Computed example of a mutant assay.
Amino acid sequence: MASSKRSWSLSLLPPEIIQEIFYKTPAEALVRSKPTCKKWYDLITEKRFIYQHLRRSQERFIRIFETVQTMDPNEFQPPYEIDTMVHCDGLMLCKFVDLMTLSCANLALWNPITRRIRWIKPVKIITSGDYYGIGYNSRCKKEARDDDGYKIVKFHCGGLSTSEYGPFGYSKVPQVEIYEFNTSLWRTIGGQKVDSSVKFTCKCVAVMGNMYWVALSDETPGEEFILGFDFSDETFKEICFCPPTYDDFSHLASFNGDSLSLLQQDRVSRNIEVWVSSKLGDGDVSFSKYLSLSGPDLPALQVHNDATRPVYCFVKTKSVILWCVGVEGEGDKVCCFSTLHEIDEDGVRNEKVIERGYVDDYSSSFLCGYVYVPSLVPLP
């Protein structure tokens, strides 16, 4: 007698089991799975599921080298080049630079997973020295807020004379401007300006709907603090002082989705320190030392002032994954190589060279890129 085989299908599982499986499924696979059936489509596009999946997703690196390599080459080609990006909820705010004038040419919001792009209507005046951030009203729960609640903030540090930008005619008090996705319009915030100098080299980070930068204190020369922008009340705030830095080298990032982290290295001794802040929004914020390493065998995280700075994320407790650039050789051609390092309290645990290539100078070295969390969050 022939034995009968019982057919099996994922769709036969209870809905709650399918949902748990989908929570552990990469966002790219979920995008491909949406057309499978109506039940799957409804679950994958349901707003509460999207943000639950975002919270459970692991951070990743996204790399830029002349263009973003993972996006459609037909959509991001010269004469524009991506200058900087800011991550928020798996969405990347991209600032483009005109290769001819080296001025900011345009802005776009991009989801690397869904490959959706939304171009941002430019403001009247755009310069390469502008700072940008993205966020939303952090007092609303993510699942309850409108997707169109995302906003962009644009500002310029310190006072500017009109002569600096000639015919553009900047006023001596630079304006702070907000772009709202629900109206597709820019507006000026009255009475807001940034008196301190933001450290562009430290990058910036969006955490829990608000933006954060490392800034230099005007009152105490050499002292640094965290400057925040609250999208709920649209004001700049001094969050806390930073720990003492090594040789002007520090890198700001997020930690656990609700805190900040600072990576520092002494360029002479190569000692590395990682600091983590207390939770943002829980009252007074302060930094405490998370990891401290010393020894000549530690990698140089920035080999030259003109070379790209590292990016990093946290995968295990008391461990950091670093993506940085190294160099070999001298003269007209320098061999650059991008390397992943896993560092914990015992030193360098693992390292792997990702790519090699020859460049003309340090400024042309590989751009390691940014850290982002893959998500299904739709563009507003």
Rank of each mutant, 00 (worst) to 15 (best):
D42Q: 09
L43D: 04
L43G: 01
I44E: 00
I44Y: 00
R48C: 13
R48E: 12
R48K: 15
Y51N: 01
Q52D: 07
H53S: 01
R55L: 09
E59N: 15
F61G: 04
F61P: 03
F61E: 00
I62F: 06
R63T: 15
F65C: 11
E66I: 05
T67G: 01
Q69Y: 10
T70I: 15
T70P: 01
M71G: 06
D72C: 14
D72S: 13
P73M: 00
N74L: 05
E75S: 11
F76H: 11
F76L: 05
P78I: 08
P78A: 01
P79M: 03
P79Q: 02
P79L: 04
P79D: 02
P79H: 07
Y80H: 15
E81M: 12
E81G: 13
E81L: 12
I82R: 01
D83W: 05
M85W: 05
V86F: 03
V86R: 09
H87I: 02
H87Y: 04
G90E: 02
L91Y: 02
M92E: 07
L93W: 06
C94Q: 02
K95T: 14
D98G: 06
D98A: 10
D98S: 06
D98W: 01
T101M: 05
T101E: 14
T101P: 06
L102A: 13
L102Y: 15
L107Q: 00
A108P: 10
A108M: 02
W110F: 14
N111V: 08
P112D: 03
P112H: 07
R115V: 05
R118G: 08
I120E: 10
K121W: 03
P122H: 07
I125H: 12
I125N: 13
I126R: 10
S128L: 06
S128W: 04
D130Q: 12
D130H: 08
Y132T: 00
I134L: 13
N137Q: 06
N137A: 01
R139L: 10
R139D: 08
R139P: 00
C140D: 09
K142C: 14
K142N: 09
E143P: 12
D146E: 12
D146G: 13
D146Y: 08
D148H: 13
D148I: 08
G149S: 15
K154V: 08
K154W: 03
F155W: 11
F155C: 01
C157D: 15
C157G: 03
G158D: 02
S161D: 12
T162Y: 12
T162S: 15
T162R: 07
T162V: 11
S163C: 07
S163H: 10
Y165H: 11
Y165P: 06
G166I: 08
G166W: 11
G169E: 02
G169L: 02
S171A: 14
K172Q: 12
V173G: 06
P174W: 00
P174C: 05
P174M: 00
